[in-house]
Design a protein around this nucleic acid. Sequence first.
RNA 1: UGGGGUGUAGCCAAGUGGUAAGGCAACGGGUUUUGGUCCCGUGAUUCGGGGGUUCAAAUCCUCCCACCCCAGCCA
Length: 566
Amino acid sequence: MTEKEHSAPQHFIRNIIQEDFAGNRLQELVTRFPPEPNGYLHIGHAKSICLNFGLAREFGGRCHLRFDDTNPLNEDEVYVDSICRDVAWLGFDWGRHLYFASDYYEQLYQYAVELIKEDMAFVCSLSPEEIRHYRGTLTQPGTDSPYRTRGVEENLDLFRRMRQGEFSEGSHVLRAKIDMASSNLNMRDPVIFRILHARHHRTGDQWCIYPTYDFAHCLSDAQEGVTHSLCSQEFEDHRPLYDWFIEHLPVPARPKQIEFARMNLTYTVLSKRRLNRLVEEGHVDGWDDPRMPTLSGLRKRGYTPGAIRTFCDMIGVGKSESLVQMSMLEHALRDDLNYRAPRFMGVQDPLKVVILNYPQDIEEELEGINNPEDESMGTRSLPFSREIYIERDDFREDPPKKYFRLAPGREVRLRYAYFITCVDVVKDENGEIAELHCTYDPESRGGSSPDGRKVKGTLHWVSARHCLEAEFRLYDRLFTKADPTAEEKKGVDFVQYINPESLRVVAGCKVEPALRGIEPRTRLQFERKGYFCLEGDSGKEPLVFNMAVALKDTWAKIEKREQQGG
RNA sequence: UGGGGUGUAGCCAAGUGGUAAGGCAACGGGUUUUGGUCCCGUGAUUCGGGGGUUCAAAUCCUCCCACCCCAGCCA
């Protein structure tokens, strides 16, 4: 790991682990990341991945990647592949510890048989609706199923026949016999096996009964020797049940479940349901749209695994549900890319500048530093000629206060090139500025003047004759509200708050020729603009760049304030 | 109205009886051939609220308030 990782702050789960080691209750830490293969991973999952794999790495233990594939109805192999890819991309290695709950189906079946034999489980033949009624409500206890007193032999026979495929879906389920009066609904004789005549993506048609999450998860953990089973808070109510199975079955290990709070991020959504809608209804261009908070989207956007890991360290691990500001994620990215991204010059909205006293027929090569933060990244050559493009926004005919870029009569520096002074503004028939006429100071080659005079502004530029054509895709927050789901609670559909300017495609951009032939996905900084990532196939013009995040823009802030202040 | 959780600055978050870390954001200032980076500085008489215990409380007790989760044969 070469990138600068923040030192991991103290949090309650790490404390528990340290205490377990100190108290000699723990020899080796074993954690697991247990996704269900029914969707794509997003930044919220990254928190769990970094926690589980990070802790294992920190304590010299191991972390398993286990797919909780207990529901064939909405699981698929394509998700397995994408999840593996995303976890690996984030920088974690599960080694040989890739597991599937479906690998344990036979063992799980045997555990269920065990429970029946001990009179701790029974086949219930109530319909789903009846089961719901018998369960009671939040404030009223449930009532025992009439099938609760079935004999062990009958239960054994029925359960075997369930497996045999003799019954239809919904006709019978296997339930743990716990306590219908429990104030914890999860303990009211929970279903542990149900009939599903569905083809499973890994076991095919081998099974027609499938274990439920509550039954499979804890026993899978135990089977793998997981020591600390970290999950999100909504499972806190399930812990008594988790412990119940562990206590009542002859399992090889006794994992400890610990819950932590989920994270939310401003200006986006993280629920599977909502993310799905964005894709289904075409509000975004697929799961890997660079505006999506999915790992595949962030990857396409130009995010680095290191930035995401740092971000996860920054937000910490606690028990209170948080709404983390997007600026934290953006900071983590800038911080990472500042040290690693090579610099280039690219003009988004070109304004031609003719340098009157620069000879028509010559051109020269100037030298640019690839990364001022890292000398080892070397230098590159920048062709310069009489006609160049600068950013239209870097010139004002009537400059506002504190504006120190180009204006009539003003002198500025062209980065790594020369000082130029604007001597004339040429307009077209509509009164629009068509081009600028400037003069340059031959003595200022490289960007500094021997007489020591200072210029306030430094502009990026490209040589008109040498530059490459490019398209910039500028991304902004996906929603106009920090918490679009809060608005939803007021009865407004969250899609109403999609930011219509979340994507701005800017054609006609000009970038420096050193960019010719760069690798797809290359992350770079366009100086004074932001961090970008080359999209798609490289080489062919126009080159397409996705903006990952803009550089901080103090001037934009000042200008906004000046305008508001009058 | 049952059970489980949470409440420390705009946001995230340490702190577990000895007098409120850190990060993001914001705001000042310095350096600067990126209005970037970097550096320096500015914030809680107070920890959801009220009582109480104590020489001493964000930390212990107590009452109250607010928010989140749970009634899938989803995970």
